[in-house]
Computed example of a mutant assay.
Amino acid sequence: MPKAEGKLSDEGPLLIFGCGFSGEAIAAQANGKFNAVFGTTRSRANAARISHAGAKPLVFDGKALSPRLIAALADTTHLVISVAPGEEGDPVLNAFDSAAIELPALKWIGYLSTVGVYGNHDGAWVDEETQPRPVSKRSHQRLVAETGWSDFAETRGVPLAVFRLSGIYGPGRNAFINIEKGTARRLVKPGQVFNRVHRDDIASAVLLAAQKNADGIFNITDDEPAAPQDVVTFAHQLAGIAPPPVTDFVTAELSPMARSFYGENKRVSNAKSKAELGVAYAFPDYRTALRRMWQDGSWKPR
Rank of each mutant, 00 (worst) to 15 (best):
A124H: 14
E154N: 14
K7N: 15
W294F: 15
G86F: 09
G170R: 02
G278D: 02
W294Y: 15
N94R: 06
G54Y: 06
F34N: 06
G172S: 05
L277Q: 00
D75A: 10
P190Y: 02
S9D: 14
G6D: 12
L254R: 07
R44A: 15
E11L: 15
A258V: 03
F163Q: 01
L14C: 11
I70N: 08
I101D: 03
I179T: 01
K272G: 04
L106Q: 03
T251K: 13
D215I: 03
Q237A: 14
T233L: 09
L8V: 06
I220Y: 11
A282W: 03
I168T: 02
D223M: 00
D248N: 14
R138F: 01
L112N: 01
A209G: 12
V232G: 01
F283N: 12
T247A: 07
E180M: 09
G170L: 04
P244C: 09
L106H: 04
M1Q: 11
G123C: 11
G119T: 07
A242V: 07
T288P: 08
V92Q: 12
I16F: 02
I220M: 12
G12F: 06
R49P: 01
I177Y: 00
A30C: 14
A95I: 12
D10T: 14
T130C: 05
A280G: 04
E88Q: 15
R142N: 08
E88A: 14
P245I: 06
P104C: 11
P245F: 08
V126Y: 02
Q229L: 07
R156M: 02
P244K: 00
G89V: 05
M1E: 09
I177T: 11
P159Y: 01
L187M: 13
L106V: 07
D90A: 10
L103M: 09
E224R: 11
L103E: 04
P132L: 04
S166H: 01
T77S: 12
W108Q: 04
R302C: 07
S269R: 04
M257T: 15
G216P: 07
R173I: 10
K274P: 03
V37W: 05
A210T: 05
D230T: 13
P244H: 06
V279D: 00
A252D: 09
D127K: 07
L65D: 00
S269D: 08
S136A: 13
Q192P: 06
A4C: 15
H78D: 14
E224H: 11
S166N: 02
A280V: 13
V144C: 13
H52C: 15
G20S: 12
D10W: 12
S269H: 03
G18Y: 00
P228R: 02
L165P: 00
S136L: 04
R44G: 10
E128Q: 01
S260T: 12
V162I: 15
D122P: 06
I220Q: 08
G39N: 01
Y262D: 00
Q29G: 10
N195V: 13
R42N: 10
A27C: 10
T77Y: 00
E253G: 09
V80H: 05
D201I: 01
S22E: 00
D200A: 14
L160K: 03
D61L: 04
V135E: 01
W149I: 12
R196A: 03
W125S: 08
S255Y: 08
I179G: 03
R302G: 14
L187K: 09
R133M: 08
K7D: 13
A72W: 10
A203V: 06
Y111A: 00
P244T: 11
A48P: 08
